[in-house]
C-alpha cells in the first residue's frame, strides 16, 4: 500500500480516537476511492470549494465521513488541529457531517442516515444540467445502503433524465451479504440504464482509469468497487466488533502499527 494511503488511514484512526466514535472498517474500505477522486479525478480544490462549476463529492454511506475528513485535511481544506476537539459539544466536526456549519464549503451534504445522498446527488446533477454547468457529481454509496428504496428511486430518475454527469460509486465491502442476497448488482443497475463498471476498490490507479474514461452518452455511471472492510489493518479486517468501535490509546498505537506493516 502506498505511504499516502497509510497516512490517511492512520489519520482516520486518530480522528476516531479523538472523537471516541466512528466506523473504522467502513472508512478503511473506501479510503482509496475517496483519495483517488480528490487527488486526480475531480475538478475540486479548497480554493474552488464554493465555485458553481466545481465537481461535487456526496457521501451517501454516512459511515465514510472519517475517511472524507482525512482526505480533506490532506488536500488543505481543513487543518489537522481543527479536529482537536472533534466530537465535543460545540465542534463542527463529528461522525455526522452538517453542511450548515461549513459556509466555506468542503462538506456538501448531511451524511448520516442512509438512502439520502444518492437522491441529493441526482438533484445536483440535474441542476448542473439545467444550468449548463460542467459539474460532475460523484456519490459514495454502500452495498448495504442499496436496500433503501430511495436509492432505486434516484436511479430511476437519473437514468430517465439522462444524467451522465452523475457517478455512483458502490463501496462493495460485502456488508449486504449478512442481510440479504442482493443478486447481480451489475445487471440490476444496467437494467436501470446505467453504464456499469467494476473495479478493484483498493487499486487507486485502476479506479482512476475508470473515472477518467466515462462516455458523455446520456447514461449515468455506476462503479462497483470491490473492497474489504477494514482494509489496511489486520485487526480491522478480522474482528467484527470494529464495525462500530473507537480505539483507546493502546489500541490506537497497535492499529497504527498494523497500518504501517500492511
Amino acid at each position: 500500500m502506498k505511504e499516502k494511503l497509510k497516512q490517511l488511514r492512520k489519520r482516520c484512526l486518530r480522528l476516531s480516537y479523538i472523537c471516541q466514535d466512528g466506523n473504522l472498517q467502513s472508512a478503511f474500505s473506501c479510503m482509496e476511492i475517496i483519495w483517488c477522486l480528490y487527488d486526480g479525478v475531480m475538478n475540486w480544490s479548497p480554493e474552488q470549494a464554493l465555485d458553481k462549476n466545481r465537481d461535487y463529492f456526496i457521501v451517501s454511506k454516512g459511515q465514510a465521513t472519517l475517511a472524507l475528513y482525512a482526505v480533506l485535511i490532506e488536500k488543505g481544506m481543513f487543518s489537522e488541529t481543527d479536529f482537536d476537539g472533534m466530537g465535543s459539544f460545540q465542534s463542527r466536526y463529528c461522525i455526522q457531517t452538517d453542511p450548515t456549519k461549513f459556509p466555506e464549503g468542503g462538506i456538501e451534504n448531511a451524511a448520516g442516515s442512509l438512502g439520502h445522498g444518492l437522491p441529493i446527488a441526482a438533484g445536483l446533477a440535474m441542476a448542473a444540467k439545467i444550468k449548463k454547468r460542467p459539474s460532475m457529481v460523484y456519490v459514495l454509496a454502500g452495498d448495504g445502503e442499496f436496500c433503501e428504496g430511495t436509492m432505486w428511486e434516484a436511479c430511476l430518475f437519473a437514468a430517465g433524465k439522462k444524467l451522465d454527469n452523475l457517478c455512483v460509486i458502490i463501496d462493495d465491502n460485502h456488508s449486504v451479504e449478512a442481510m440479504i442476497d442482493m443478486g447481480d448488482m451489475r445487471r440490476k443497475l444496467e437494467s436501470f440504464g446505467f453504464d456499469v463498471f467494476e473495479a478493484e476498490g483498493h487499486q487507486e490507479e485502476k479506479l482512476k482509469e475508470v473515472f477518467l474514461n466515462f462516455a458523455a452518452n446520456g447514461r449515468p455511471k455506476a462503479v462497483i468497487a470491490d473492497t474489504i472492510r477494514g482494509y489496511g489493518s489486520r485487526t480491522l479486517t478480522k474482528e467484527e466488533i470494529w464495525f462500530h468501535k473507537a480505539p483507546n490509546a493502546q489500541e490506537l498505537s497497535m492499529l497504527c502499527r498494523e497500518v504501517d506493516e500492511f
Binding site: H116, I120, G123, L124, A127, K131, G149, W152, E153
Partner: peptide
Amino acid sequence: YEDGMFGIAAGLAAGGM
C-alpha cells in the same frame, strides 16, 4: 416516488434551483 423525489429536490435546491 415521493421519498426519493424529495431528496432529488433537495439536491436541486443545493444546486441553486
